[in-house]
Design a protein around this nucleic acid. Structure first.
Length: 561
RNA sequence: GCGCCUGUAGCUCAGCCGGAUAGAGCAACGGCCUUCUAAGCCGUAGGUCAGGGGUUCGAAUCCCUUCAGGCGUGCCA
């Protein structure tokens, strides 16, 4: 509808220009907005004010010229008015609005989807936790955001690959192996022989027990069986990584998140990609030796200081495999990559991009794109929760899912824009009342299903689109609902383009609210079978839209509550 | 010190590629169930958009600056 109005305005300007009533050469960007106040119509446009200067006319005079032309086009408009300093306000006929209901019904589960991505490849990398412990709440926010962004992109016609990258070989993994070994030997963290910076969580104890028991673990397509030998550090390392990866997968499964690709940092070394990147960077002339280390001149690409690639002890810093990994993404044909990470890893953004620029492979400067989410604070009983029994120093994702459920956890994690710090209120998320936004929205869906159930019991058959007497829908609540339904595709598009899933939660809240208002003022099932049919048709469309929106969030739409 | 994020109602937050009288939820106060789910609805009250400058017809929104909070600023990841 918005697109249509834009086109109509552009057309009007063109016509006036060729008729000579408008003279300026420049066509301003036409912005069609939705006025806050109903008396300003369904849509408004400020183009007359923008053109006033070039036309050397008062804004209202320009608007007058355009409106004269716009009124001739009439069509879907009840009225086109000039208001305030020169706004052009459009009032769309109820009949035109009602047509969207048939569209929704016809589209069904596809309502809200589009093909704007044109089937192009996009990769979303998210979570990417190292296998050194259970996933924590920060990973949870990343998982919810990354998965929802992936669903948004899929809904807007992109071919999405979800990818999880992890380090299975570095210093932290050695540390993990040492920690498990210490537990195998019966050491406690306060023992003087306990490894420095060892992982102290209870899960290490479980892991050690599993290792000693000779358990077998499958993860990422590999089967790893514990040797049970506490002196075989390499065997411990392999088992620990597989064990914790499986644990993380179980958490992700419980969260309804799946990945298409698990990418191992070790493979970058095995395939020689790390060495290859070093070679190319040296060849490109952007690397230099100093103090026994090999540096990359990242300052040439916007970094505030140069970075070490190969340490004086001969090992690589993490950022070399990072570059190698991203080069591999590029070579895999992902001209569009979105990395979802915690903002505490913000400093990698400039470095990775700088490294890729230094390779001189024609990779665009802003590639890859990043979505960085701010910290999560968990509250219970008005106090911050910092400790998990299992992990020790942090709250795990599994704790949250177990306590508040998958739906509420996902919903809460995407309820705020990524840039904002998130306060996760466990008490609120568990609340099965109106205070809880998830239940409020799901309840709307369940309520509609209940009405249909009720209708079925009375032998009422909901009408098909063609038979529904849509013209009978005319109360303010009905029209408000229809208008709310009509903007859903724009909300999906906007959320996808900006990587802002929270817009969907606000939309759902609004739509559910419109429905509940309608429900309280209008009875659906009445003796008037024509009106009953029309209202059932409307509610069918509301249910479709609620369900589709919730599906993008990965949240269920229950039929009974 | 420098970089990024944030600062909007009592609380949690939308709005931020400039638009009309700044919104929602919760909390507070007052109403609505013999009727399809009251997990709901209606109403009232609540604001120096952190402070100060600037740009413009117009600023919560853009620019500068001050203050406050968070994160980062490794030959850690």
């Amino acid at each position: 509808m918005k697109v249509y109005i834009k086109a109509v305005i552009a057309d009007a300007i063109k016509t006036c220009r060729s008729a000579g009533t408008l003279t300026s050469a420049e066509l301003p960007a036409i912005v069609v907005g939705r006025p806050t106040h109903p008396e300003h119509g369904d849509f408004s446009c400020n183009v007359a004010m923008q053109m006033a200067k070039g036309e050397r006319k008062a804004p209202r005079a320009v608007a007058e010229i355009l409106v004269e032309r716009l009124r001739e086009l009439a069509g879907i408009f009840d009225r086109v008015e000039i208001a305030g300093p020169g706004f052009i306000n459009f009032f769309v006929t109820d009949a035109a609005w009602r047509l969207t209901l048939s569209d929704i019904d016809a589209a069904g589960a596809d309502y809200g989807s589009s093909r704007s991505g044109a089937g192009k490849k996009v990769q979303v990398e998210f979570v990417s936790a190292n296998p050194t412990g259970p996933l924590h709440v920060g990973h949870g926010r990343g998982a919810a955001l990354g998965d929802t962004i992936s669903r948004l992109l899929a809904a807007t016609g992109w071919d999405v690959t979800r990818e999880f990258y992890y380090n299975d070989a570095g210093a932290q993994i050695s540390n993990l192996a040492l920690s498990v070994q210490a537990r195998c030997l019966g050491l406690e963290p306060d023992d003087p022989r306990w490894p420095a910076d060892g992982y102290q969580g209870e899960y290490i104890r479980d892991l050690a027990a599993a290792y000693l028991a000779g358990e077998s673990v499958a993860s990422d397509g590999r089967q790893v069986t514990a040797s049970g030998d506490p002196n075989d550090l390499e065997a411990i390392r392999r088992f620990a990584v597989a064990y914790l990866r499986r644990e993380q997968d179980q958490d992700l499964l419980a969260f309804g998140v799946h990945f298409d690709v698990y990418y191992l940092e070790s493979s970058l070394y095995e395939e020689g990609r790390v060495a290859e990147v070093i070679r190319r960077l040296v060849d490109s002339g952007h690397a230099y030796e100093q103090d026994g280390a090999l540096w990359l001149r990242t300052t040439a690409f916007g970094d505030d200081k140069d970075r070490v690639m190969r340490k004086s002890d001969g090992s690589y810093t993490y950022f070399v495999p990072d570059i190698a990994y991203h080069l591999a993404k590029w070579e895999r044909g992902f001209t569009r990559v979105i990395n979802e990470q915690g903002a505490d890893h913000h400093s990698t953004v400039t470095r990775v991009r700088a490294g890729l620029q230094a390779l001189d492979q024609g990779i665009p400067q802003g590639w890859p794109e990043y979505v960085l989410h701010q910290m999560v604070t968990v509250m219970r009983g008005g106090e911050e929760v910092k400790i998990s029994k299992r992990a020790g120093s942090y709250v795990t994702l599994r704790d949250l899912i177990d306590e508040v459920g998958r739906d509420a956890t996902r919903y809460f994690f995407v309820m705020r824009k990524p840039d904002s710090q998130l306060v996760f209120d466990i008490d609120l998320a568990k609340e099965q009342t109106l205070e809880n936004p998830v239940y409020y929205v799901q309840y709307a869906h369940a309520r509609i299903c209940s009405i249909f159930e009720n209708a079925a019991q009375q032998g009422i058959v909901p009408p098909e689109a063609k038979e529904a007497a849509l013209a009978r829908l005319e109360t303010p609540e009905e029209m408000a609902l229809i208008k709310e339904l009509a903007i859903f595709p724009e909300v999906v598009e906007g959320s996808a383009l900006s990587f802002e899933p929270h817009r969907l939660t606000y939309y759902l809240q609004e739509l559910a609210g419109q429905f509940h208002s309608f429900y309280n003022k209008n009875r659906v099932i009445t003796d008037d079978s024509e009106l009953t049919g029309a209202r059932l048709f409307l509610l069918k469309c509301v249910a479709i839209t609620l369900k589709n929106a919730l599906a993008i969030l990965g949240v269920s739409a229950p039929e009974k509550m």
